[in-house]
């Protein structure tokens, strides 16, 4: 069963009244529990494709269906609600909120659920334990290394148990050791927890961790 199904997607941006085609007739299917790496030179549209799958941008044409929901049919409010339940997003620069501790960062998506404060805290602590940061619950981002920050971001992405994990160059800002740890963690989530993962990367060693590698060039899937 497909968790992500992208059909004939075209994305055009207007730049000073000039049309800029970023994605041109993309179709891609990601099966449930699969781990797909999207590769390509910078500017080939892989982040845009990831944004479309995450429901944070809308295609100019074509359809994006994730976890059985065609996203173009949802209004902004419904799309936000859908995102909170179905998508875990991992950014290149971690994007943690400076004023929150690791535990509070991970608890953040759970604020949108009906869980009690105790339940939220328990789940957040469990997610942090899973990424090996159970001893860093009260630490702020400034007190963590880059690798630890990215692991907090991964914990935040998985805490709601979403249908799909989307990672935008998750190792792009990390040293080799931290990058390897992060990839290992994503691999574990894929293998042991059967998580569906779509990862954008420019790093061939990172892409090797994925089960499937797809290549984009100038907005077109070439492999």
């Amino acid at each position: 069963m497909a968790t992500v199904e992208v059909r004939d997607v075209r994305k055009v941006y207007l730049r000073d009244s000039q049309e800029l085609v970023v994605l041109d007739g993309i179709s891609i299917v990601v099966a449930e529990g699969d781990f797909v790496a999207l590769m390509g030179p910078s500017g080939s549209g892989e982040t845009t494709l990831l944004n479309l799958i995450a429901g944070i941008d809308r295609p100019t044409a074509g359809t994006v269906t994730v976890a059985g929901t065609e996203l173009s049919r949802l209004g902004e409010g419904d799309l936000a609600r859908w995102r909170s339940r179905n998508v875990g997003f991992i950014f290149q620069f971690y994007n943690l909120i400076p004023v929150l501790t690791a535990l509070e960062q991970v608890e953040l998506p759970l604020l949108l659920t009906s869980l009690s404060r105790r339940e939220r805290r328990e789940r957040a602590a469990t997610a942090l334990k899973l990424v090996g940061l159970s001893d860093r619950l009260g630490h702020y981002p400034r007190q963590l290394s880059g690798g630890q920050e990215q692991r907090v971001a991964i914990a935040r992405a998985i805490v709601t148990d979403p249908a799909v994990l989307l990672a935008d160059e998750p190792t792009g800002d990390l040293d080799a050791r931290s990058a390897a740890e992060t990839l290992e963690l994503l691999g574990t989530l894929h293998r042991e927890f059967r998580k569906t993962i779509v990862m954008v990367t420019h790093d061939p060693r990172a892409a090797e961790k994925a089960r499937v590698q797809r290549h984009l060039e100038k907005g077109v899937l070439v492999g």
């Binding site: 409010g77 936000a80 609600r81 909170s84 953040l108 998506p109 949108l112």
Partner: peptide, 11 residues
Amino acid sequence: ILKTLGFSDRR
């Protein structure tokens, strides 16, 4: 980030 996590515009 908050919007990406699912916080609505209203929230």
